[in-house]
Design a protein around this nucleic acid. Structure first.
Lengths: 122, 122
DNA sequence: CGACTGTTATATTATGTATATAACAGAAGT
DNA sequence: ACTTCTGTTATATACATAATATAACAGTCG
């Protein structure tokens, strides 16, 4: 899978890596049991430091997206903790939807947008 | 309106202030034309530095939520740039929904959550 | 043994956040 | 006029995070 880094973004590099891997899982480019590239390999591929990739992997492990095996490296392994995920989702949506409301984006448009995005995740 | 700061949060103070003011607008606690407290007053009320509040106000102005009047201070004035707001919304939703998808949260649940939150904004 | 894993340690640089103190220019009220 | 309140700007400091660099360690595998 191709991971692209935007060096002009204000988003931290390790978060860009984390987010793209999560997107890769949602779009089935990564599947349960698949191995991620080694920290050194991925770092070399996208032109960043090894420790930055390692931090992304560490976060992915803490958040329950991968498990780390000394032999196989980082392996996709989803730990479904719906309760915590729901709380985070609700907290983030509150702010995002308040912004959307102030910008006159209707509920209908948001529902449509959700269906559009979610439709690509299978 | 009461603005509460969580000093244990990993979210920047000025972003907490910004988000709570946006939530205040969405919940009609602030209305078009209302004046926000002065930077010095609000800073004193919530126990943070004047410049931190000033940064929050500056961001709110850049994002089109307030206009700053030398006489009246910061005044709620919504600048509706739907195009940019939509793009931001879509970009943020992609990651959030990918996370939700990995955590087995269904589309139906998300639609319900959206209606629940949006219902409080009027 | 050699080459590969993740992991840990240490150090350095850069950036963003938050604070403190100070001063300026414009507007408002007395 | 004088004082007091606005936002704004400038400078400096302290701190945390992010990112890099170099190095070493302990397992795993062919």
């Amino acid at each position: 899978m191709i991971i692209e880094i935007d060096f002009n973004s204000d988003e931290a590099l390790y978060l860009q890596v984390r987010n793209q891997i999560i997107l890769g899982i949602a779009t089935a480019q990564y599947r349960e049991g698949d191995s991620l590239p080694s920290v050194r390999q991925l770092a070399e591929d996208i032109g960043i430091n090894m420790h930055t990739v390692n931090k992304a992997y560490t976060v992915l492990r803490q958040e329950g997206y991968v498990k780390v095996d000394r032999r196989k490296g980082a392996v996709i392994a989803l730990d479904v903790d719906s309760m915590q995920a729901r709380e985070e989702l609700k907290r983030e949506l509150k702010v995002i939807l308040a912004r959307s409301f102030c910008k006159n984006i209707s509920v209908g448009e948001i529902h449509g947008l959700i269906d559009e995005i979610y439709g690509e995740y299978t």
